[in-house]
Design a binder for these strands. Structure first.
Length: 108
DNA sequence: GGAATGACATTTA
DNA sequence: CTAAATGCCATTC
């Protein structure tokens, strides 16, 4: 990049991580919700941010699923993502989140 | 600076 | 309901 301004604000990714770190155990959110919380429609960019997640320990990227209830993807494998979620109390069946609304964490 | 890429979403067939 | 096409936007090549 020739424009090394970066401004003073956090990168899009950092903002995503910040939001994710707010999600309590046993709750999930969607890429859409995160994007909306950042006041943008960069749904896909949110996914990219997760893929670039530098610290999976502090950032529970496994709590982010697709807006249609599907699990989506995960750096460590979808199966691993499912296991993590289930161990936190989120019911998953047939690769989809059951009672999605109940487990949904909204940033508003 | 521009093109390509992606852990998505929504609409249409 | 499933599948394909189209739109979006930040990041990376």
């Amino acid at each position: 990049m020739t424009k090394h301004l970066k401004n003073n604000r956090l990168t899009f990714n950092e903002q995503c991580y910040a939001l994710l770190s707010l999600i309590p155990k046993g709750k999930v959110t969607t890429y859409k919700a995160i994007a909306e919380a950042l006041e943008t429609k960069a749904y896909q960019a949110v996914g990219n941010a997760m893929a670039a997640n530098p610290n999976p320990i502090k950032v529970p990227c496994h709590r982010v699923v697709n807006s249609n209830g599907a699990i989506g993807n995960y750096a460590f494998g979808v199966d691993k993502k499912i296991e993590l979620l289930q161990s936190e109390g989120v019911i998953i069946q047939n690769g989809k989140v059951m009672d999605f609304k109940a487990h949904f964490f909204d940033f508003k």
